[in-house]
Design a protein around this nucleic acid. Structure first.
Lengths: 123, 123
DNA sequence: TGCGGTACTTACCTTTTAGTAAGGGGATCT
DNA sequence: AGATCCCCTTACTAAAAGGTAAGTACCGCA
């Protein structure tokens, strides 16, 4: 791992954008950071139910090298690290908005349950 | 594979939308079908440099069960199958447009090379 | 006769991605 | 004294995604 800028060459813009958001939790991380502005590691962890520490660090590192998130480390005694979106991260989020709306429509159409409303109707 | 509607539950719309477009060639398939309207299997294959027949069928089948593409089989002597976008596929493509634009910007910034000079229609 | 084109399917293998579990080291809480 | 919190790192394992190659069955062309 630790691919520096990222692989390419890309065939079109969708390619390049999907490369950056594909990853099980990246969409949610983007959303959390967009909603709260600044979040610490443990806050993000609590905000993403089920994420492991390894995956969270890994995704955050990749998003940092991709120029989406800013990582600010405070050399304090209980270590403190704050994550926030960069300008690129914010524009990405804005570009993602119509896709999110489409997804919400799809969930509605298909009758999928969201996580907190999960009720197992007979499959 | 052959997951019927798709897994879920989703945490947000981005989740649901990414579920449907994640796959190495799905973005390109969407683009090809959007650009040409109707395409046969072998035409799509030629349009996606490097795709294997297996991956192409697999992706097309998933996109069909996801309600994005329509598959029309003609029972002719040299078999003929035509693929096109459904209405949902077309709205997805429209929702993908800002993301594609973001990706193009990113490619420009990073100085990645594109494979071909063809421009996606939804820019 | 043998090749290429049509649209796949199947089996097998490699690569990538994600999950699990443990550790580290100092500081505050009980 | 012991537990917990903080933000990770490392090693190992499992699952998913993707690639390669071959087979199917029928046809037209040279």
């Amino acid at each position: 791992m630790a691919r520096a800028p990222r692989l390419g060459p890309y065939i079109c813009g969708i390619d390049a954008a999907l490369d950056v958001v594909s990853g099980k939790w990246k969409g949610l991380i983007l959303w959390e950071l967009d909603a709260h502005g600044v979040r610490r590691f443990a806050e993000l962890r609590r905000g993403l139910p089920g994420v492991s520490e390894k995956m969270l660090t890994q995704h955050l590192r990749e998003m940092e090298t991709d120029g989406l998130v800013h990582r600010e480390v405070y050399a304090e005694v209980p270590p403190r690290v704050e994550y926030s979106l960069t300008e690129h991260g914010r524009t990405l989020n804005r570009a993602l908005a119509p896709l999110g709306a489409w997804g919400v429509e799809r969930i509605r159409r298909e009758g999928h349950e969201t996580v907190d409303a999960a009720e197992p109707s007979h499959l």
